[in-house]
Simulated scan of single mutants.
Amino acid sequence: MTIADEINKVIRTIRTSGESHQVVLDRTFDTDIADLWDACTSPERLARWFEPTLGDLAPGGRYTLTRSSTQGDILTCEPPRHLAITWEYQGDVSHVDVELLAATNQRTALRLTHHCPPGDHWDTYGPTAAGVGWEESLRALGLHLAGDARSAPDEMDSVASTPEGRELTRRAAEAWGRADEAAGTPANEAEARALRTAAFHLST
């Protein structure tokens, strides 16, 4: 699989609704909707590609991601199609929606929408910060569904530090910069926000 193939697997869209900026990722996976839902909601499977997860994964419950200390509320859980949560990280609160739609030939479309509030973080990094981060997570999910052990969080961190991984981060940031511009951000500002995000990821 080439870097271009990975970049082209994701459709990137930015929308604005009221004061919320919506960072939208669409990607189709080679599995049925029940399996994809299980991979996105089972604590045992989440630990294999995303993060170890604790809590009550039911409407009204709370969850904690133990690796990043992200936590939040379960707002909606409608198997196997819709999960909505709050995303509470370092004092900021946003919302994430995951929607699944069965496609043809045992394939399933996933749409992830991160509702980002306005503020200094958005002004500095725009949609690229959320976009690049979620894109890496969806890449790990794809590996997990294919039975590839490189989906494990520590393995993904190692891959990200290789020349190929660093190039993939740069290319993903550039793609989000183009989506930012397509959503109406001036070209120089969209490029600057994408470059800041890439620099942040490549420095860690």
Rank of each mutant, 00 (worst) to 15 (best):
D26A: 05
D26M: 05
D26L: 03
R27L: 11
T28Y: 05
T28E: 15
F29Y: 13
D30Q: 14
D30M: 09
D32C: 06
I33P: 01
A34F: 12
A34E: 15
D35G: 13
L36Y: 06
A39K: 11
S42R: 15
S42V: 06
S42W: 07
P43L: 04
E44H: 15
L46A: 03
A47P: 04
R48A: 13
W49D: 01
F50C: 06
P52H: 11
L54Q: 15
L54D: 14
D56S: 15
G61C: 09
Y63P: 08
Y63C: 09
R67E: 12
T70H: 12
G72M: 07
L75N: 10
L75G: 10
P80R: 08
R81A: 13
H82F: 15
H82Y: 10
I85N: 05
T86N: 04
W87N: 10
W87H: 02
G91P: 07
D92Y: 11
H95P: 00
D97L: 14
V98L: 11
L100T: 01
A102R: 13
A102P: 03
N105V: 04
N105R: 14
R107A: 13
T108G: 02
A109C: 07
R111Q: 10
L112C: 11
T113H: 09
T113W: 01
H114K: 07
H114N: 09
P117E: 02
H121R: 13
H121A: 13
T124M: 09
Y125G: 00
G126S: 05
P127R: 07
T128D: 04
A129Q: 08
A129P: 00
A130T: 11
G133R: 08
G133H: 05
W134V: 05
A140H: 11
A140T: 05
L143E: 00
L145T: 03
A146V: 01
A146Y: 03
G147L: 00
G147E: 08
D148N: 05
A152F: 06
D154L: 13
D157T: 13
D157K: 14
D157C: 11
D157E: 15
S158F: 07
V159T: 06
A160V: 00
S161D: 10
